[in-house]
Write a protein that binds this DNA or RNA. Sequence first.
DNA 1: ACCTGAACACCGTTCAAGT
DNA 2: ACCTGAACACCGTTCAAGT
Lengths: 239, 239
Amino acid sequence: MNGLPRVVTIAWCLTDASARGPARRLSHAAITAAAIEVADDQGLGAVTMARVAQRLGFTTMALYRYVSTKAELLLLMADAAVALPDLKVERGEGASGLRRWADAVRDAHRAHPWLAEVPRASTSAMMPNSARMTDLALRALDGLPLTAPEKLATVLALSGLAAFYADVERSMAAEPTEAIDPDALAPFVGALAASCPDVAALTASGEFVNTTGADDSWVEQQYAFSVAALLAGLPSAAE
Amino acid sequence: MNGLPRVVTIAWCLTDASARGPARRLSHAAITAAAIEVADDQGLGAVTMARVAQRLGFTTMALYRYVSTKAELLLLMADAAVALPDLKVERGEGASGLRRWADAVRDAHRAHPWLAEVPRASTSAMMPNSARMTDLALRALDGLPLTAPEKLATVLALSGLAAFYADVERSMAAEPTEAIDPDALAPFVGALAASCPDVAALTASGEFVNTTGADDSWVEQQYAFSVAALLAGLPSAAE
DNA sequence: ACCTGAACACCGTTCAAGT
DNA sequence: ACCTGAACACCGTTCAAGT
């Protein structure tokens, strides 16, 4: 037996404000917001206790009054980044609501491309915004012929797909993916032909390795296709 | 226009062995293997240029003769970790083959729980073992009424789901998830009730927050359910 | 009780030097 | 050409000290 993770009580504001001593000049919200600014601007790798503190005009060590570890700060950032979008879901709406819900999750990841880089922690699900997002999805699933674990699996899988494709998009944007010179590609195609006939065929037709430069739409289509498949398959998976 | 990423040519052994100078006393394979040992033993966070070199009996800087950056080493590790399992897939086998394929991907992630932590790079798809895995899945999909992008989406989504659930499993194992004291849970349930009625209901029935200690089987069931739904929904998503 | 300054034990990566 | 030693500019986190 043990208590709630400390960061959960922080995020839900379940901790009593300490009464004694000098007034606090920082706050979890301010620290989290500053860290998100850094991550949005320069990537998660640039999120440093020193850099966050500097942006707030404080010393690095001042942060440790509010956060006991950098991992805790990352959890706060991740939860703040999935703050509820403008999304209304009808109770029992089903597939159409879930599709819009997945799009909202994806939008959050697009707005904060570093989200997928934050190490997953089992605590995440108990954080307020994550819980609210889950709640919306469960609302859409209400009344459907699925067990509770099946509903949770649906929610997890959908958010997993949304996060996954958003991260694919991020990784493509990160490496500018200039078109690869066909001459440079030749030895690679040769190696492929030997052990990967099906991939080699796709590569030859230009559908595997991107030889034409940036190409945004296909990730969108693949995401839409995957979500559509998952949603369409729910009834038969439940049998 | 530019050439193949350097790490791709390394992984496919497309670089000419340098002839002149002292014989090389290290190799990419040895370095990658040592790094994987470190990651398996102590987690990806413990993978340090210094620690890898030490395990091999070399100086840290010796590694930079073989790898131009730590990110490159991580790519080599990730690809080596998905080395082909003992998996036969019939051409055009369809759903049953894809399910076993997804299980194989998941097994790789279970054997190397740090896999999901390796930052995704667009280069990954061109690495040899990744390509071979993709090839197997395409083999199972051959002849099905799906376009090439739809087939790739299926492969991506399946591997995404396998990786996702393996990472969920890892994160649960990382935080020992002792049962949470009901008394400590009470204020959390109270907060939930206000903004998350559906999640609160699940929590009350013990299906959301784990209040009973370790619980492996539900991740397995949720993974199986998600994959089943995705596979079952393929035909209707393709229409 | 907050916040600071100095310090510790690390990182990845560079560069000139040895062989 | 390989490999080493020393150095650089960082990290997260600690601890004692100020207010």
